[in-house]
Simulated scan of single mutants.
Amino acid sequence: MKTAGYIKVKLSILLCGLYFLFNSCSGPEPASKITDISDLKAEISIYQKLTDENDNSISVVLRDKNGKMFGNDSVNIWVNGKKAEYKIVQQLYYNKNYLYHTEKIAPEHNQYHLQIQLANGKKFFLGRVPSLKLSSARNIIYEEENSLNKDFSIHWSGLQDVNVLYLSKSVKIENKEKNNIETFMQQPGDTVRIGPSGTYSLKKEKFSKPGETLDILGFEFTAEKTGTVNSKLLKGSSIMIRGSHDEHANFK
């Protein structure tokens, strides 16, 4: 016969499961309950190509005081005067993401300016961030095909607003049991703070270590800026713009 303790454990598991299911399936806070900008946290992300300022993508995620995603088609967001589309994105299982999205917005006075209108008709400044200055990947100089037996260098200049270099590696893994099968693995590399001009070098001794050999080195010359959000928004609100030149070199 099952004990009372066993039944309590099973009941607790069932209740936890129902709680998870309810919270996963339930929608966002009703728009009528969000009456002021201070009821919201805003996470604004912008991607802009560094070769064309009009080729961009802007997404806004709103959260309520409980950290839960908030969205409603009666709440509107504009970027430089263009209304963003309210979207519900179905995720795995019962989860949904609620966001506002728009693309190909021309910067005005070299910036992106966002406004929000709540369901009660109140309008607020949401955030602003400078657009990224344009630059060309032609100013990134390196050898696309490289020997594992010599050092490697990248030189760049005139990359306005670029301030971070992200590196990643694809390495070939040795398989002693199956010599005719090649296995590759992606690995993170260095993150380097840089300026518009500079040099990055990698010694050949870094290309290999026991059991693996460098195959491809990827490097992402990235421009990242943070902007200003409405000071009345909940703590943790942010706006960031990002763009990059993505390159890679092969090694043999």
Rank of each mutant, 00 (worst) to 15 (best):
K2P: 11
Y6L: 12
K10R: 03
L11V: 06
I13P: 08
L14I: 14
G17L: 14
L18K: 06
L21V: 10
L21W: 14
N23H: 13
K33E: 06
I34V: 12
T35H: 04
A42H: 03
A42L: 12
D52L: 00
N56W: 05
I58Q: 05
S59E: 15
V60Y: 06
L62I: 07
R63A: 02
M69K: 14
N72F: 13
V75A: 00
V75W: 00
N80L: 06
K82H: 15
E85I: 15
V89F: 01
Q91R: 08
Q91E: 14
N97H: 09
Y98A: 00
T102P: 12
E103R: 05
K104H: 11
I105N: 00
H109I: 06
H113V: 07
L118K: 03
F124W: 10
S131W: 01
S131P: 10
S136I: 08
N139S: 08
I140Q: 11
I140N: 10
I141S: 06
Y142A: 09
E144W: 01
E145K: 13
S147P: 10
S147E: 04
S153E: 02
Q160N: 12
Q160F: 08
V162M: 03
N163K: 04
S170C: 09
E174K: 11
K176W: 10
E177F: 03
K178S: 04
N179V: 09
E182G: 04
T183N: 15
Q187K: 14
P188Q: 11
D190H: 15
S197D: 06
G198P: 07
T199C: 13
S201I: 11
S208Q: 11
P210R: 10
L214A: 08
D215L: 07
L217M: 14
F219Q: 10
F219C: 01
E220S: 04
E224L: 14
T226D: 00
G227D: 08
G227S: 08
G227C: 05
T228S: 07
S231K: 14
K232N: 07
K232L: 05
L233H: 12
G236V: 01
S238N: 10
S238V: 03
I241N: 02
G243R: 12
S244P: 07
H245R: 15
H248W: 02
